[in-house]
């Protein structure tokens, strides 16, 4: 076992044993149950609503979990001084950040997978069956989680959980509303140079809307799990985008963290 795996697996272990995580998971499961039940009775067993609500909840809880657990990921290591026991061993700081991130991604994935199983089981019980597009939707959620956790890794390596939480939340909102923001800019700024500048600025933010196409007009086409959903090619591209984006964020985090005094 190398340093990366050692750190990742222990971060994972520590995370899934945390009582706070349990309560979030329990809450999420409860909401999925109740939400789907309500959707079920109010809309006469419309399987589209069940899937839409279920995937929507999964996506939201993916974000909540990532932010909640990610805000203290590095901060807590420094604050509780557990980092003294790790970085005084032969492991680089970038490797440490990457290991922490991987471990947390793993634990969030576990929870999401659990929720997904529950969703599928529930839809089976309600006679809605299974739709292969659900897999694609879950994959997109998984990709978004990587981006969010890389962002919290960056922020939590130099700021408090509160600030990390606020910043990440802001980025999530902007990232999900990017197409709308772009629209606003086009309307608001007539001058090309200004528009270009604003456009550039927005490009810094992660294109999180790419990961929630379900139930929206997307690239001029309505996509939904139960109807025409995104292609496998699209899934591949978003995967690549998520990995590239997180890699850059992690690189920045590593540069910030490299020479930091851990007092």
């Amino acid at each position: 076992m190398g340093p990366l795996l050692a750190i990742a697996s222990n971060t994972y272990r520590e995370a899934i044993r945390n009582k706070v995580l349990y309560s979030i998971v329990l809450f999420a499961l409860l909401i999925i149950l109740v939400g789907n039940f309500l959707a079920d009775i109010s809309l006469h067993n419309d399987k589209r609503v069940l899937f839409d609500v279920g995937i929507g909840l999964l996506s939201t809880f993916g974000l909540i979990l990532s932010v909640f657990t990610g805000t203290s990921l590095i901060y807590k290591e420094i604050d509780r001084k557990t980092i003294y026991l790790i970085l005084t061993k032969p492991v680089g700081r970038a490797q440490f950040l990457f290991g922490k991130m991987l471990g947390l991604v793993g634990s969030v994935y576990l929870v999401l997978a659990l929720m997904f199983v529950l969703l599928v089981a529930q839809s089976a019980i309600m006679g809605s069956g299974f739709h292969p597009n659900l897999f694609k939707a879950v994959l997109l959620i998984f990709f978004e989680v990587i981006i969010i956790i890389s962002i919290t890794t960056l922020f939590s390596s130099f700021s408090t959980p509160f600030i990390t939480g606020m910043l990440t939340f802001g980025i999530i909102v902007i990232g999900r509303l990017l197409p709308d923001l772009k629209q606003i800019i086009i309307v608001k700024y007539q001058a090309d140079s200004m528009r270009e500048l604003a456009d550039r600025l927005l490009q810094v933010f992660p294109q999180l809307y790419l990961f929630v196409p379900n139930g929206h007009d997307f690239n001029g086409q309505y996509v939904s799990i139960t109807a025409e959903f995104v292609t496998w090619g699209y899934i591949g591209w978003t995967a690549l985008y998520a990995i590239m984006y997180s890699a850059i964020i992690l690189l920045i985090a590593a540069m910030v963290f490299r020479r930091r005094d851990l007092t």
């Binding site: 076992m1 190398g2 340093p3 050692a6 750190i7 697996s9 222990n10 026991l85 061993k89 492991v91």
Partner: peptide, 10 residues
């Protein structure tokens, strides 16, 4: 914890 520590040293 010790298992992890050993892991870091490979």
């Amino acid at each position: 914890f010790l298992t992890m520590a050993a892991g870091i040293f490979s």
